[in-house]
């Protein structure tokens, strides 16, 4: 398969790769340049028709009946879904549907909000993520996170990347920094100014720096909470390209409000909506449908999903 070292800078090639689940390579030649999302959807659907069992992979997370509340108000209710290894899993839905809340439970970032509580079970490779002996710090070492707004540390580019390996007591810091920057396709842009403050970078570079920073501690999963919402289209494209490469090494969960993005980058997509109770005083998020991305965007089972992806609502 092409580009397995993942360092090509040609976006079209990489997008082709991202939507490249087939065995015969036929779709690849059909020209991913026209409509990447659509090409990809067809590809996935075809694969399913040809009988590849897409639900039989290794599971990273098993989310079972999870309800997350702030105080006594539920932010998202009764979510059940499995998240698979070396895939990109997208969470989409209108704002307020709890997708960010949900993703923050996967590496226990919600612990930082004292009023937040998680009911139900989240298994990480079969281990209860919220078990009594589980250490959130250890969890976050293995499950990294990239945030909505780029949040580089107010330090040099080098120190931004080196921070994680240093606190985790890793060695060969220089090598790790270079490797992470290369992995995030940032090395060529910054190799001559590693000592400059990271605040001097563009927004897109800052976000890729944050991705590199996460890669440098070698997690198994990378969670991305709307990583491109603060970025321009070109930077967004670069990060989407990056994701396609990253899933070779990592499992990725991404929250996005951008449906095209979900269609372009993800293997599976979960669609959440905002539910209101009768009095409209309480609102919470609920999982409507979770399936392969192609299916969600071309042939959803639920009418609400169809209305959302076709732009009728939302």
């Amino acid at each position: 398969m092409v580009g397995d070292t993942g360092l090509s800078n040609d976006p079209t090639e990489q997008l082709g790769l991202a939507g490249q689940p087939n065995e015969d390579g036929q779709l690849h030649t059909e020209g991913p340049k026209e409509d990447k999302g659509l090409t990809r959807q067809i590809a996935v659907t075809r694969e399913t028709e040809s009988g590849g069992d897409i639900w039989a992979k290794d599971k990273v997370f098993e989310v079972k009946d999870v309800t997350v509340s702030y105080g006594n108000k539920a932010a998202v209710k009764d979510v059940t879904m499995d998240i698979f290894q070396n895939e990109v899993t997208a969470l989409i839905g209108p704002s307020g549907c709890g997708k960010s809340t949900l993703i923050r439970c996967l590496n226990r970032m919600n612990d930082l909000v004292s009023s937040a509580s998680v009911d139900g079970e989240i298994l990480y490779h079969g281990q209860d993520l919220y078990g009594p002996k589980v250490d959130p710090v250890q969890v976050r070492k293995m499950i990294g996170m990239v945030f909505q707004k780029p949040n580089p540390f107010p330090k040099s580019i080098f120190d931004n990347i080196a921070f994680g390996p240093r606190v985790l007591g890793m060695d060969d810091i220089d090598d790790r920094v270079e490797k992470a920057l290369r992995g995030a396709a940032l090395w060529d842009e910054v190799k001559d100014r590693l000592d400059d403050n990271a605040y001097g970078m563009s927004g897109g570079q800052q976000q890729r720096l944050c991705i590199a920073r996460t890669m440098a501690v070698e997690p198994e999963v990378i969670l991305m909470d709307e990583p491109c919402s603060a970025l321009d289209p070109i930077s967004t494209g670069k990060i989407e390209d990056l994701m396609a490469e990253l899933k070779e090494e990592f499992s990725i969960v991404i929250v996005t409000h951008n449906m095209q993005q979900a269609a372009r980058v993800s293997d599976k997509t979960a669609f959440l909506i905002v539910e209101l109770d009768a009095t409209e005083d309480n609102r919470w998020g609920q999982l409507v449908e979770y399936d392969e991305t192609g299916k969600i965007f071309t042939n959803p089972r639920d009418q609400r999903t169809e209305d959302y992806v076709t732009g009728k609502v939302g």
Partner: peptide, 14 residues
């Protein structure tokens, strides 16, 4: 197949 290849971070494979 791509999953079987070893990339830049191959040390942490599947």
């Amino acid at each position: 197949e791509a999953r079987d290849t070893i990339g830049a971070f191959g040390a942490r494979g599947a």
